[in-house]
């Protein structure tokens, strides 16, 4: 019991489970006692959540959103890899650095330009998403490249590799597992943007559209239930991408000592 307040102490799985359970219960209790008036109580949100899960409405909308996010992430990672790999060439270095700085642009100001450039709603949504995600991906990947241990390059040199072979070995092969880590870390950002983007073109539906609708009617219970859904999907993806990374790149996971 004392251990959970000690720095760097390792606690066993069972303790972690109980600890988390207690934390969740406390949070729910706090929520229950503090909420009054417009803010719905946890029980109400839970029943709305269950109801939502059973409805076809939710499933359809989730599918639309997920599909869009995945598509956007796929395009984004391809663009990112291209620029990240090229960033080792001085000519493209400045381009990559510019993309990094594009994080400071807000999408809202660019909607009109994108509307002019694209031909329909789904294209608009996709391109806005990609435009929004890429700077974050590139930022993550460049920091991976910057933090490469100089000894990796030295080993390449002693093996007699030229610069292109070094690029291939150290960055393309050596950092392939990081691609998954970047997807995982930035999934949250794409997920965040989707609600905004979907509000722009409501005809195809999606979680974002649903959220906006509920918000409009002040249906706070369903808004919170939907948030819960979004949260859970996020967690699933986090887990899925993590598992895929460890499965595809066994070295990305340290073997743990078997505890009896």
């Amino acid at each position: 019991m004392k251990k959970i307040f000690q720095p760097f102490a390792t606690v066993n799985k069972q303790t972690v489970m109980t600890m988390v359970a207690v934390q969740v219960v406390i949070t729910l209790l706090l929520w229950h006692t503090m909420s009054a008036g417009l803010i719905p109580k946890p029980a109400k949100v839970a029943s709305a959540f269950v109801q939502l899960l059973g409805s076809k409405l939710l499933l359809d909308n989730i599918l639309v959103s997920l599909l869009l996010t995945l598509k956007a992430m796929l395009y984004s990672i391809l663009i990112t890899l291209l620029f990240a790999y090229l960033s080792v060439l001085p000519f493209f270095r400045s381009v990559a650095l510019f993309i990094v700085k594009c994080r400071y642009l807000t999408l809202t100001g660019l909607i009109f330009i994108f509307t002019l450039l694209t031909k329909d709603g789904s294209e608009l949504k996709l391109s806005l998403l990609v435009f929004g995600i890429v700077p974050f991906f590139v930022t993550s990947f460049l920091s991976v490249i910057v933090n490469i241990n100089p000894q990796e390059y030295e080993l390449c040199k002693t093996l007699g590799y030229n610069n292109w072979q070094t690029l291939y070995e150290v960055i393309i092969i050596g950092k392939a597992d990081q691609v998954f880590e970047i997807l995982r870390q930035n999934f949250a950002i794409s997920w965040l943007m989707i609600t905004m983007v979907e509000g722009l073109s409501m005809s195809e539906g999606g979680i974002g559209t649903l959220l906006i609708k509920y918000n409009k009617y002040n249906d706070l219970t369903n808004v919170l239930a939907l948030q819960l859904v979004i949260f859970v999907i996020g967690l699933c993806f986090d887990y899925l991408l993590g598992t895929m990374r460890h499965w595809l790149f066994p070295y990305s996971k340290l073997k743990e000592v078997k505890a009896s």
Binding site: N149, Q151, E152, E154, L155, E169, I173, G174, A176, D177, F249, Y251
Partner: peptide
């Protein structure tokens, strides 16, 4: 080298 670096991947 002294610290025996190898490609971790």
């Amino acid at each position: 080298f002294q610290n025996y670096y190898l490609f971790e991947w």
